[in-house]
Design a binder for these strands. Structure first.
Lengths: 125, 125
DNA sequence: CTAAGACCTGACGTTGACGTCAGAGGCAAG
DNA sequence: CTTGCCTCTGACGTCAACGTCAGGTCTTAG
């Protein structure tokens, strides 16, 4: 086994990140602008990402879908990466959790109402 | 029992509707503009609403929270009021239902991820 | 070498549900 | 009558997460 070079994880360009995560190239640039996703640069200035960037962007999408803002996501990223938190961060995490839970409850209530409408209108065509 | 006049349900003004439903006066006007909520007018031009308007506005809020647009709500209002639907409307109702259900699932997934983060960071302070 | 894509940096446009401000009436109390 | 609060009609502002366009550079298949 040669001791020469560890297999350098091949970096990917922005288009591949975007396609992999199912978002636009513009969106990926936007995430960088919001401080969510840093990129190396090639000598010519093109952004280069590790493969994990794809999963990371998917995570962003999931959080956006949950109603978090870029700022919220930026705040909770250090918690995830460092694995430890101070009191303020824990409070923030719990607050976001409560917000989402409340939203789930709201949606469930809306769903119930819609189901009621559907039931009524289906049995009275 | 006098046969004179049925107790006229007292109409309320826009401010009371807004306070009752927990939204702004501007929002109530906006709903009218979107064709969601009609109002009588006093001789001087002020909007007058029945009490049920409050509940109706709450319903709007619930639907907005579920991610429906004003247009969506406007489309499903006739279904609710008439109590019957054509095929297209039923399809629309089901589609919205699916959208909301998908959103609930997304939120639940986000919640699970957040819970995981919270758990890890709580046990590693 | 060359043409087609992919990528770059600005920078303005979009969408939805309102917020906000201006200017002008209404309306009950004192 | 006037003070104070509510309401009216426009009409422009906001905010977030991008879309889109312009004009130029890079990379890669052939």
């Amino acid at each position: 086994m040669p001791v020469t070079e560890a297999a350098v994880a091949p970096l990917i360009r922005i288009g591949e990140v975007a396609r992999g995560a199912g978002v636009s190239v513009r969106a990926v640039r936007y995430y960088e602008q919001q401080g969510l996703l840093a990129a190396e640069r090639s000598p010519s200035g093109q952004r280069l990402y590790a493969h994990e960037a794809v999963e990371r962007v998917r995570f962003f999408q999931q959080m956006y879908a949950a109603g978090l803002t870029s700022r919220n996501i930026a705040e909770l990223l250090p918690c995830i990466e460092s694995g430890h938190t101070d009191a303020e961060q824990r409070a923030m995490l719990r607050a976001e959790r409560e917000r989402i839970q409340a939203k789930v409850d709201d949606l469930q209530a809306a769903l119930d109402r819609l189901d009621h409408v559907i039931e009524v209108t289906d049995t009275h065509p």
